[in-house]
């Protein structure tokens, strides 16, 4: 029995839904120490905490690869489905169709999305399925020990000295061209930018595709690789300084007029893009594609929000499904009455 009064415990840090940062964590990562994917998991935890996302509303979906394992390492209280190689997009599509109240958070690798899964990748983009789609892009296949992936740059070298002689697929350019409505590239080492872009993605109402360069420290972090930490750091050219202002925080970001663009997001939050380069309009597909082509030719790695469209209807809008989750509609709404069956049979008599 304590005879002396204990000092009051320091109030726990909680977010607007009353959860602590620890509530957004997952199991301990089994990925290599220093792997870019771990840094991305941390940003996801931070973004969900800051936004006050309720974990039960999130479904984590992934394919196969080191990257696709990572959903086990964040948001422990969310449902998760680690599916088959390259097929996360279809599983995510089915999940969203079944329950439109769910926030689908897809995590994939560059091998998973740009090689085996490119078919599903492009079709998800076309449909503008409401979801966040993260490619943890290390230019190689981590889990199968370092082979080139289809996002490896021309001339990039493997540890073994093999040089990549095929041009890379730019997943951002593809996503923009095909109809995704929030397309960005970031770097696992750029905490601030990645966090802001993730937060924007989480409140977006169509496909938010983030290609996050995420060095594989074990197989692709050497001299001669264009996806190594040092190479990406040296060649990273952020398009703008991105800040995310959630709707529930009354913050005004002051920038000199003409130096920044503000984008209103559907829930009332805002993205503020402080220009670092020439005038860039993230509402123009043509500009986005030109930027990507030109910077690629120059050997720059441009990061930032390339394209956003908050107007285009998403896949659920197009399908005109009811507002409630299809998964849990009661029998009375999914089994037509006997009279319907009789009517069909009569028409065939």
């Amino acid at each position: 029995m304590a005879t002396t009064a204990m000092p009051p415990a320091a109030p726990k840090k909680v977010n607007r839904v009353g959860l602590e940062p620890a509530d957004y964590k997952g199991n301990r990562s089994t990925l290599c120490a220093g792997c870019g994917h771990n840094a991305i998991s941390e940003r996801i935890i931070e973004a969900c905490y800051e936004l006050g996302v309720e974990p039960y509303r999130v479904a984590k979906l992934s394919g196969i690869g080191c990257s696709s394992k990572s959903p086990a390492y964040f948001l422990r209280s969310s449902h998760g489905f680690n599916a088959v190689h390259g097929r996360m997009p279809s599983v995510a599509t089915g999940t969203v169709l079944a329950n439109r109240a769910i926030m689908a958070l897809g995590v994939s690798g560059d091998g998973d999305s740009a090689s085996i899964g490119i078919g599903q990748f492009v079709h998800l983009m076309r449909r503008n399925l409401p979801c966040v789609y993260i490619i943890e892009d290390n230019g190689c296949y981590g889990l199968t020990k370092g082979q080139f992936s289809a996002t490896a740059d021309l001339g990039s070298k493997l540890k073994t000295g093999v040089v990549n002689d095929l041009p890379p697929i730019d997943t951002c350019a593809l996503a923009i061209q095909l109809g995704a409505t929030y397309v960005a590239r970031s770097f696992s080492g750029d905490k601030k930018q990645l966090l802001a872009l993730l937060e924007g993605a989480l409140v977006h109402r169509g496909t938010a595709m983030l290609d996050v360069i995420s060095p594989c420290v074990t197989f692709n972090d050497h001299e001669g690789s264009t996806k190594s930490y040092s190479y990406v750091k040296d060649h990273d050219e952020p398009l703008s300084d991105v800040s995310f202002v959630p709707y529930f925080e009354d913050i005004t970001v002051e920038y000199e007029p003409g130096t920044s663009t503000e984008i209103a997001l559907p829930d009332g939050s805002r993205l503020v893009l402080k220009k670092l380069r020439t005038d860039y309009d993230p509402h123009s597909k043509v500009e986005a594609l030109r930027l990507l082509t030109e910077s690629h030719d120059k050997g720059e790695i441009v990061t930032g929000l390339f394209y956003i469209d908050t107007e285009r209807p998403n896949f659920l809008d197009l399908l005109n499904v009811v507002d409630e989750p299809l998964a849990t509609l009661p029998e009375s709404r999914v089994r037509p009455p006997q009279s319907a069956l009789n009517e069909v049979m009569d028409s065939l008599r």
Binding site: L61, V91, G94, G119, L319, V322, A327
Partner: peptide, 27 residues
């Protein structure tokens, strides 16, 4: 509004993958 969703997928891999995602989510 529809109490259903019918989607012509890009191939059978996606068709069954979507069905699996949906079945998992309770549809």
């Amino acid at each position: 509004k529809a109490t259903f969703a019918i989607v012509q997928a890009e191939d059978e891999l996606a068709a069954v993958g979507m069905a699996i995602g949906a079945g998992w989510a309770g549809a």
